[in-house]
Amino acid sequence: MSDSTISFQERMATAEFRVHHDAHIVVDGKVCADCSTRECVVACPASLFVPTSDGGIVFNYEQCFECGTCYIVCNREGAISWHYPEGGHGVVFRRT
């Protein structure tokens, strides 16, 4: 893994995530449906938001850095609801 050719999956595997069974990110697909700018897809450093071919957005919450970029960068009121995962869960940094 000595250059930039590593896959995004490998990149994310370098961080530890203690995944909780409940999602702490919820995306309201109805609000996103007619969003063309899709800031979350570009800006999320963990690439948790993935556009689908039918114009929707699939979101993951498991490998979230809990930074808050997605809901701050989003232009649509109510599209992304976001809170911290339950105590003890989520990302655990080591050498940051």
Partner: peptide
Amino acid sequence: QGAELKEYSAHL
């Protein structure tokens, strides 16, 4: 050069 990725991280 030659350095290996140990941890990727992000914060606002």
